[in-house]
């Protein structure tokens, strides 16, 4: 008896997880299968844990984030240009006094 799992990702490549559930001697086959299920849970947790981490890293390295950063820089430039415009009137005020 073998408890098997297969994962197919975006690339279409299958990855298999296998757990042997051979009953030893007079042991109950269902008992062996239950032990196999426990082992499969461990494998699944390990496998998908790695997969989730890779997915998170992929999102972190997304080029769109860089573009978002550029947008922020552009916003700051606009703010600076606004400040420059606000300095204009203050420079003109001394002229009426003379």
């Amino acid at each position: 008896m073998e408890l098997s799992g297969e994962y197919v990702g975006c690339d279409g490549e299958p990855q298999r997880l296998r757990v042997s559930c051979e009953a030893s001697g007079d042991a109950d086959p269902l008992q062996s299968l239950s032990a196999g299920v426990v082992r499969m849970k461990e494998l699944v947790a390990e496998f998908f844990g790695t997969l989730v981490e890779q997915d998170a890293q992929g999102l972190a390295e997304d080029p769109d984030d860089a573009l978002d950063g550029d947008d922020e820089d552009d916003a700051e430039d606009e703010n600076n240009s606004g400040r420059t415009n606000s300095d204009g009137p203050s420079a003109k005020r001394p002229k009426p006094a003379s």
């Binding site: 849970k41 699944v44 947790a45 998908f48």
Partner: peptide
């Protein structure tokens, strides 16, 4: 979503263990 995968499969395996105990 791989996160949903992990949750759903773990739930299934837990329930499978329970079903096996019931059969025994």
């Amino acid at each position: 979503d791989p996160v949903l995968f992990r949750i759903s499969i773990n739930t299934f395996l837990d329930q499978l263990s329970l079903v096996m105990r019931n059969i025994q």
